[in-house]
Amino acid sequence: MDWHVIASGVLVISGAFLTVVGAYGTLRLPDVYTRLHAASITDTLATFLVLAGLAIPSLVAGEWLIAVKLLLVLIFLWFTSPIASYSIGHAAFFAAQKPKLDHDLTDGEGDKA
């Protein structure tokens, strides 16, 4: 096998594995705030690994327009996912959903929620 087939396969498989880890994390963790941390693994590194893995064969074949499209998908996801996460966390916090905390380094804002 060529090096680029192996490299692409390794990247895509590890990305898919991280997606499973992130989704598994959302099943294990106790409340919506901690689950959002697990979900952001899927949004950041897993997305990057899958899309980078897919870009390799296109770049080797010289189809750079396809690689640019993959880059655009990555940029869109990385620009929008923090805003979606923030909105969900913000809405949960102001719907009086108290986070389960071990440490509160603010002046008790976790209880006000």
Binding site: P82, F93, F94
Partner: peptide
Amino acid sequence: YANSITLTPGTLSID
């Protein structure tokens, strides 16, 4: 800054 905090897993800006 807030989006960078959210984009790094493990930290999430809420307000």
